[in-house]
Amino acid sequence: MNEFPQFINIPLGDYIKTFISWLTVNYSGFFDGVKAGILSVLLKMQDFLIWIPWFAVILFIFALGWKVKNLKSGLTFTAMLLLIGLMGYWEAMMLTISIVLTAVVISLLLGIPLGILSAYNKRMDNIMRPILDAMQTMPSFVYLIPAIMFFGLGSVPAVFATTIYSLPPVIRLTALAINSVSHEMKEAAHAFGPTTWQALVKVEIPQAMPTIMAGVNQTTMMAMAMVVVSSMIGAKGLGYSVLIAINRTDVAMGAEAGISIVFLAIIIDRLTQSVSEKFKYDE
């Protein structure tokens, strides 16, 4: 009596597996197309990032840090990047950045419109909410399985898994941002007879921008975390070095790659955060 009855067994996992297999077989053309698309963007991005001389990158980040934050931050970022380079992880870092950037761009292109849609449409919001909950609580490794089934091994499934994982914050925060534009400001806009599009573009999005930017920051950080995990399915980069270090129980390599990831995350976080600060308006 203490055991859960075995005879009523619902094989939900099998259903999902069947569904995913069905997708893979019947929509292989679609997935191949997506794969080719993502791959071409990714490769161009990688080529470009590796092509830029290392000192140009450091100079650029230094200047950016100085401009959006302060001189001290600029110098700190420079020191961090130099250390990553000196430890020998420059190229790995660039590969990581390329996957993160591609995933973030896709997340934003999908996430901001979806966020706006669910702010405007109650039913859309009701549908999105449980999906987003699931996306955020599902262990990140689980995304790797369908990613392999759809796209095989390599960087493309990594971009796919990273995109799925980093999508929720930008959707959530965009919806929140649009919903929390002050009531009087919305009324003021509508009192002048704009179309829905005009009100959205001229008033609501600009007003929502600080919160949307916080969403962009969150999404970037999530992507950064996921790209490391996705090295398990063959994504090159800093995460891959960590993976190798685990396999070899190589403490030195693990520490170096780990520190590089932390530094990169700090730089990306501080920069996107400062940019989002710039969007704040005083009342």
């Binding site: 009087e184 400001m185 009324e187 003021a188 009192a191 007879g193 600009p206 007003q207 308006y281």
Partner: peptide, 20 residues
């Protein structure tokens, strides 16, 4: 929309100005 654009305008208690 045409009515609001051409005939009527409104001034608000807390101004309702666009801070951006």
């Amino acid at each position: 929309r045409e009515f609001r654009r051409n005939k009527i305008a409104m001034v608000f208690q807390h101004f309702g100005l666009f801070s951006h």
